[in-house]
Design a protein around this nucleic acid. Sequence first.
DNA 1: CTGTTAGCGCCTTCAG
DNA 2: CTGAAGGCGCTAACAG
Lengths: 340, 340
Amino acid sequence: VRNLNLRQIAKHARVSTATASRAINRIPTVNPYLAKRVWKVIEELGYYPNTQARALVSGHSRTFGLIISELTDPFFAELVQALENVAAHDGYQILLGMSGRDSGQLESGIRRMIERRVDGVAALGFDLSEPVIRVLLSHNVPVALMNRLSPPPGVINIRIDYQNGVRQAVQHLAALRHQSIGFVTGRESLMCTRVQKNAFLDAMTEIGLGTRHDFMISGDQSIESGKGALRQLFSLSYRPTAVVCSNDLTAIGMLVQAHECGISIPHQLSIVGFDDIDLAQFTGPSLTTVKVSRADLATVVFESLVNAGTTPASTEVKEYLLPTNLVLRRSTSLAVSDVR
Amino acid sequence: VRNLNLRQIAKHARVSTATASRAINRIPTVNPYLAKRVWKVIEELGYYPNTQARALVSGHSRTFGLIISELTDPFFAELVQALENVAAHDGYQILLGMSGRDSGQLESGIRRMIERRVDGVAALGFDLSEPVIRVLLSHNVPVALMNRLSPPPGVINIRIDYQNGVRQAVQHLAALRHQSIGFVTGRESLMCTRVQKNAFLDAMTEIGLGTRHDFMISGDQSIESGKGALRQLFSLSYRPTAVVCSNDLTAIGMLVQAHECGISIPHQLSIVGFDDIDLAQFTGPSLTTVKVSRADLATVVFESLVNAGTTPASTEVKEYLLPTNLVLRRSTSLAVSDVR
DNA sequence: CTGTTAGCGCCTTCAG
DNA sequence: CTGAAGGCGCTAACAG
């Protein structure tokens, strides 16, 4: 059927392709009268400029690759949605690439992104290996990471303020007279798990509370692991009266398991989540949690990538720190006494 | 830094660009010895063919646009993940485009997809207007829709078998001796809402059970609306003993509200969901629901779009029907007696 | 201010 | 079976 190109537009508007191009790109030096004529033809004929050709010559695709491990984790789903919004607002597109925990799949995903000449790649909820990062950087593709512990040179590292977030949670519990507090970690292999765990230990030490080894439960940020964590906690002879989770999904799992076992939350156990996903306000009881703004996170990711594309690549690491806020709901309450 | 192109590869391999191109595209007529040489150079130099240039000349971008309203709805998150998987497997990319309920945003999203010359667009969980569809089709972009009631000519319509799915739910409840059964619909403006509702009424008539008008609650597929639906139901003087929901999120909302009001599920009310999202197995009690396979749905969407791109566009509507399966869990039980 | 021209990186006839 | 040449749609010098 029809497949219009610039030349035909130019012909219909009785100008040269150069002028038509300039009109489209709103270059101010073009005669307004001619510009109007060009736009009129574009409207009438329903012309859509070919992004591929544009990208080919300009070198910018206005496209960012997004590597995600689990879209089914609500935190990431909400983050992707937020990112898509800010990107769309500036005419950028998001190219999806799931890693799916399979390294071969990851590699082919990265390859396709480079072949598509993305203007940047963000890897969220997933630790990209250094070799992969180097490949990306060597192709002039800016890379944005989340919570990287020792970021390789040249990347953008966006850190969520776990130190402060976890401290807020711990101090809230301490203010409620909790003395023995547990922590459920994320997947051992992820860097941010270590950061969170240390933040927890620091916060506890800071207020003079020790932590027993068996109060540190290791999970994987899933509902299932939250359920397991609760069972594990209640099989202890000496139990904590409160627990902080590495994310809301874990906390929700604990809530579910408590419900099944007839354990009353928050009376028998106070629970604090992390992230503040939408679901957190709908659980029974609603979840006290540390909020991480997806909108802010998305904005930082987007702007830092756009920025990296316009400024010359450097080997230094750009760090951004994202604040957190405690959201009080109904899954925490005053500690009555130690439970045994 | 480095930005390799075909010519440089050809030069290093001491062949012409044509031969290099043929080698890359695995055209069998090329001398295996030369091909090997080309591939070796590609490996050594780390060459990534430029997809934009390829697309420019071939006319195919190997990219599908995906229009989604709510990525935060787990059903769609799981569907997108599934779709990304099958697409990646065949070297296709997914270009995200949220509609965000704002028609201006939708329009600019569609525009960007056409400009990017996507090979097809899938609109899921969202009714694309006919003018928009016509624009897409007039640009030779195949369009895949979900549960369209009267699909415009030329589109692909993928129907979930609501008729059968809802019937399975109703018959399950009837087998448990439920006589008065309610239904919570989705957003009134969506086509599939009407389809589901009619399927429900048909299924009820089929087994000789009438339906009271006040047992039909209208919702919007959110947790919140599920909570509202339960309150609405329990404010009736004469109540149903069971209810079917248009999706799992609604059912989960009812569960949450029941918990808050001290209503016991399934004893005081049996609840059946729809979709079988991952979360459904973790609720308390776990949710009896009608499963819609995301993997199958994704496969059908993908293959039908690929297919539409290779066969000449026709004005007929391609229909696909996706089966459903009842999954029995713990949110339904025998009706003891009518509750009043 | 406008038009002509030369590529961007690749594929694909068309001759050898 | 291989290579030279033209062109996909667009932008950016460079002349007028």
